[in-house]
Nucleic acid binder design. Structure first.
Length: 456
RNA sequence: GUAGAUGUAGCUCAGUUGGUUAGAGCACUAGAUUGUGGUUCUAGGGGUCGUGGGUUCGAGCCCCAUCAUUUACCCCA
């Protein structure tokens, strides 16, 4: 068999020991903050029934779901009409009934409905697992990446939204970010704006367009709006709203004036004010909270607050987002249950910390003591010592005998092991171990008990 | 799906208007040093120049196709 060039599917990555150490540091930091705020961890399967996922992310989203081919003779059960017509979309449902999860929110909604009788509401859960998207990878975008989600269902209190801001602030500040912005908006305000303009049916096109303001500028937004069916008159009304400036409270007051004819718009303003009041009673560490009318986010299931987090220290897409969705479980037959949640994009946070050189050196977790010996006798003598060190919770390994001592030191060196014990015939005879400090190169003769006190 | 960029050693990359045997650093192996690494010195292994075709006396270099990677757009973490 010809050797194939080893590679991983595009948009996926291997994680080597150094990277894993750093990734775990990020995950542990975020998870411990989630726990601190009362969230409990769950996991769901990597694959869901395809029908659970389709239709939840819009047409574009559906295309990006990784489908899993049915096992066995899937073609014999395929829709022959679709097959003959080479119609992939129509064929899919007859040859694939499972798919990799696209996010953690929809599987969570499915979980809540299935386990509703065992859950005490409000239910606060967090989940840290990979998700898969079949889109073109590019900077900061992968086809397999981890999300760290915290959601609460069964509580319509805006305290939850306020706590999300605190969670973002605490987790990202702890990770060492010094300047980041939590953007907040409210779907009801967007609805109100669409209502004022008199084009409520075009709210999705409107939000998609104004969401791009910082990327394509006002001219680009105007062009897109005009091409989607808005008139110049609509644009004239919209432009001053989009360009609102001032503090969050100033923006809120102006919005209240603009939206005075829209009940839903005013409701959105009221919600935001309540959230700001909660947050103002708490002290934020490093976060800036910014009311941003242009923040829309693609997911159409949001009904209240919308969040997005961006670092200001480097150029990177958003490193987190979330919002409130009033009826996510309705699709699975459980009506009237409100939810809200946030997500951290761990892979992007990794890239940001890397770029800003914010990983602490101390996160290196490796072997502390390496025992080196020359032959079988040394190996046998070393085993009880090995057990003694490990009993003291010291990461210790014994290099298998039969390798040149030079190679064994190389190994310790490359792995960053700080201490080495050498055992040869002299050591076995005297009971005094050669204990070497790898960094300085110095060594001394010590008993095992002296070694234990040194490395503890 | 649309557009651009890039494919040369395990990795990062040089390679001049097209010219004879394609290089460097890192990594790896061995030796200097048979019980002492990280520094130093010496030697060595490693390449279908992504693939296929074309132009040419001659192609890593030019042309076409194809595949892969990557960046941006759509969309999104």
């Amino acid at each position: 068999m010809a050797a194939i060039k080893p590679s991983v599917p595009k948009g996926t990555r291997d994680f080597s020991p150094v990277e894993m150490t750093r990734r775990n540091y990020i995950f542990e930091t975020i998870k411990s903050v989630f726990r601190k705020y009362g969230y409990q961890q769950i996991e769901t399967p990597s694959m869901e029934n395809l029908s659970t996922l389709t239709g939840k992310y819009g047409d574009e989203g559906d295309k990006l779901i990784f489908k899993i081919l049915n096992s066995g003779d899937f073609l014999s059960k395929a829709d022959s009409a679709a097959l003959d017509a080479r119609n992939s979309n129509q064929l899919t449902s007859s040859i694939s009934e499972k798919a990799l999860r696209y996010d953690l929110t929809v599987p969570f909604a499915r979980y809540v409905v299935m386990h509703q009788n065992e859950i005490t509401f409000p239910f606060k859960r967090f989940q840290v697992q990979p998700v898969w998207r079949a889109d073109r990878p590019q900077k900061g975008r992968y086809r397999e990446f981890y999300q760290c989600d915290a959601d609460v269902v069964g509580s319509d209190s805006l305290l939850n939204e306020a706590e999300f801001i605190l969670i973002y602030d605490e987790a990202l500040s702890t990770l060492g970010l010094k300047d980041f912005t939590i953007k907040i908006n409210n779907r009801k305000i967007l609805s109100g704006i669409a209502e004022i303009i008199g084009k409520p049916e075009l709210i999705v096109d409107m939000t998609v367009a104004i969401d791009k303001l910082d990327k394509i500028g006002m001219d680009g937004v105007v062009n897109e709006l005009l091409s989607k069916g808005f008139t110049q008159e609509d644009v004239d009304k919209l432009e001053p709203i989009i360009l609102l400036e001032g503090s969050n409270y100033e923006k809120l007051n102006k919005l209240r004036y603009i939206l005075s004819a829209s009940t839903i718009g005013l409701k959105g303003c009221e919600e935001l004010e309540t959230i700001f009041e909660y947050v103002n009673r708490c002290k934020l560490q490093r976060a800036t909270v910014d009311l941003d009318i242009t923040l829309a986010r693609g997911l159409n299931y949001y009904t209240g607050a919308i969040f997005e987090v961006k670092t200001n220290e480097t150029f990177m897409g958003s490193i987190g987002g979330g919002g409130r969705y009033d009826d996510l479980t309705g699709m699975f037959g459980l009506k009237g249950l409100t939810g809200a949640g946030i997500s951290f994009g761990a892979d992007r946070i990794y890239d940001v910390l890397q770029e800003l050189n914010l990983f602490p050196d101390s996160v290196a977790q490796t072997t502390r003591v390496l025992i080196c010996c020359f032959d079988k006798a040394g190996e046998e003598y070393a085993l009880p010592l090995l057990q003694q060190l490990r009993a003291e919770n010291i990461n210790t390994e014994l290099y298998p005998a039969g390798t040149k001592i030079k190679k064994q030191f190389d190994y310790a060196n490359n792995k960053g092991v700080p201490y080495v014990i050498v055992i040869g015939s002299d050591e076995i005879e005297s009971g005094l171990l050669t204990f070497k400090y790898m960094e300085s190169g110095t060594q001394e003769k010590l008993t095992i008990n002296q070694v234990l006190t040194k490395v503890k």
